[in-house]
Write a protein that binds this DNA or RNA. Structure first.
Length: 242
DNA sequence: CCAGACGTTGTT
DNA sequence: GTCTGG
DNA sequence: CCAGACGTTGTT
DNA sequence: GTCTGG
């Protein structure tokens, strides 16, 4: 599901909205097209350093492979996403959910929408902040991480799609766990019981209203222009009568 | 019991 | 390291 | 090579 | 009986 994200807001606004500054020496680079499969650097707030914005690699390396993180990621183990319902059972994640939770900072993400089994169009999903698409809420998405030699390796939590995202992501019916602003700090508290965490997974999704619109498939070509998130015409199936 | 997995879903 | 599957 | 299957998944 | 998967 959530394999593409964007974060392009001004540095100042990001820091303001999450009440934290970028850690010293981290240079913020906006991006409209962050591709999970490439294990890119993303911006996170981690439980063990919760007062600053850190960098992490998108792709968790479990604790039984700490001797060779690069080798693990090259095996395409698909640890970019973690199913929230299974966090305490999944072998690669169960140790990390306990006290290695984080936020992933995006201001939007992409989901594929299927017009038919073969025809698909990506949709950009975001929460407007104000009237224009150019100001989007800074999303705090639930994640977990492993830390190896001072480097964070991160997995994004997904849950069953709500009604809105079932319409958009109509094949897999999953969505990222975008934490509600009023609850998000709880995700970063130490030593929370399993019941508390699973409650956040089940009920912590934001109550703010999402917007989504179709975008150009230039997205899949790696385009990183502002136009990547701009609305295009929805796909129209060919009509016999046009 | 030992070998092999360990993860989730993409797309033109 | 620990679990699952054959 | 042997064991086991022998089938497919609507709609946008 | 024949094919696939391990």
């Amino acid at each position: 599901m959530c394999y593409k994200g964007s974060i392009a807001a001004e540095e100042r606004r990001i820091q303001d909205r999450v009440s934290r500054n970028f850690k010293d020496k981290i240079k913020y680079t906006p991006s409209y097209n962050i591709n999970a499969f490439a294990n890119p650097q993303i911006y996170i707030v981690a439980q063990d350093d919760p007062d600053v914005i850190n960098l992490g690699v998108w792709g968790l390396v479990p604790n039984w492979k700490t001797n060779d993180p690069k080798g693990f990621l090259s095996k395409k183990q698909y640890t970019n996403n973690a199913r929230g319902e299974d966090l305490y059972e999944t072998p690669s994640y169960k140790d990390h959910v306990v006290n290695e939770r984080c936020w992933i900072l995006f201001d939007g993400f992409f989901e594929p929408h299927y017009h038919s089994p073969k025809i698909q169009q990506p949709y950009f999903c975001y929460i407007p902040e104000g009237r224009s698409i150019s100001k989007r809420q800074i999303l705090t998405i639930a994640g977990i991480y492993s830390k190896i030699q001072d480097e964070y390796y991160v997995s994004l939590i997904t849950t069953e799609a709500n009604d809105f995202f079932s319409e958009i992501h109509n094949k897999q019916k999953r969505m990222p766990l975008v934490l509600d602003t009023s609850l998000r700090e709880k995700w970063l508290l130490k030593d929370q019981p399993k019941t508390m965490i699973l409650d956040l997974v089940a009920n912590g999704f934001t109550k703010d209203k999402f917007y989504a619109h179709p975008v150009s498939n230039q997205l899949y070509k790696g385009s990183n222009e502002e136009s990547t998130i701009r609305a295009v015409e929805p796909f129209q199936s060919p009509s016999l009568f046009n």
